[in-house]
Write a protein that binds this DNA or RNA. Structure first.
Lengths: 144, 144
DNA sequence: ACCTAATAGTTGCTTTTGTAACTAACAAGC
DNA sequence: GCTTGTTAGTTACAAAAGCAACTATTAGGT
């Protein structure tokens, strides 16, 4: 008869990924949360606009793999904080171009500094090659 | 004057970790959700008890890094499904030992099979050495 | 014995997320 | 022009997570 393989939870890839993502994510979240009262999705929207320039909510959904309601609410929250403005496109008034305000850019630039410092701190734990491989593998795992 | 470093969101470790964890986690979640209507925390509690034997809710909190309210509700849900039983310890009636029922064990064994298949599918994308390094790094990153 | 502190776990309330239905704007066929 | 279908984004309601206050029980000091 077939003997069952023992299962070790601490060796299960999705579990390890979740633990690592949760630990680093929540640690970094405390920075932008305390500074700007931002939620994780708000941070992502801010960084998408800051890194890649103006785009629509739909674009952010696709790039970040977020649901449109989540983005919609994050955009509203950021607009309330006066970090971005919405401009209906004349050629198709269903779309709206999202643009960071000056204050939004300032917040972005400030948080870029924090992000780089945070990432450097994580990177310091590993060699350059190890880190490159980790990132390559994470990108791979993010795909279905 | 100092020029700002460009920042690439797709190269930010916590972001990559989150994307990878989210993708694999939600794909795996659909298995135990459809089979047993379990939430992620319930799955974790079930697997902690299945893998490591009886323990208290507190033990699970510490091992899994979960808040006690989350565990408390997951335990209640699993008890409702008759997957576990609670037994007050006579020597200290504040603690309760959590034990899987026969049905709980069956569900666990069933899901262990799914977990192993799922993990094998993920592992197939990489070499043995790569995977070992990934896991080592994830464990590292899970620590503060 | 009695008072205070600590601990395991639960409950209530608020915030956040998820899902589905909705609105408004456009497009294509007839 | 008028249906029918599609798309961007919002809203409403339900599920889940987070946080703080609570109960019950034990431990320790006096």
């Amino acid at each position: 008869m077939s003997e069952k393989q023992p299962f070790e939870l601490r060796d299960f890839t999705p579990y390890l990924l979740n633990q690592a993502a949760e630990a680093t994510g929540s640690r970094f979240q405390s920075i932008y949360k305390s500074k700007y009262g931002m939620l994780r999705t708000e941070w992502r929207v801010l960084f998408h606009l800051g890194c890649y320039g103006d785009m629509t909510a739909k674009d952010i959904c696709e790039r970040a793999g977020l649901h449109k309601t989540k983005v919609s609410r994050a955009v509203s929250a950021l607009a309330l904080k006066r970090f971005l403005e919405r401009h209906e496109l004349p050629q198709d008034r269903r779309h709206e171009r999202l643009t960071l305000t000056t204050a939004g850019h300032r917040a972005f630039e400030d948080l870029v500094g924090d992000a780089q410092a945070f990432d450097a701190q994580l990177a310091a734990r590993f060699s350059h090659d190890e880190l490159a491989l980790l990132k390559k593998m994470l990108v791979q795992l993010a795909h279905p």
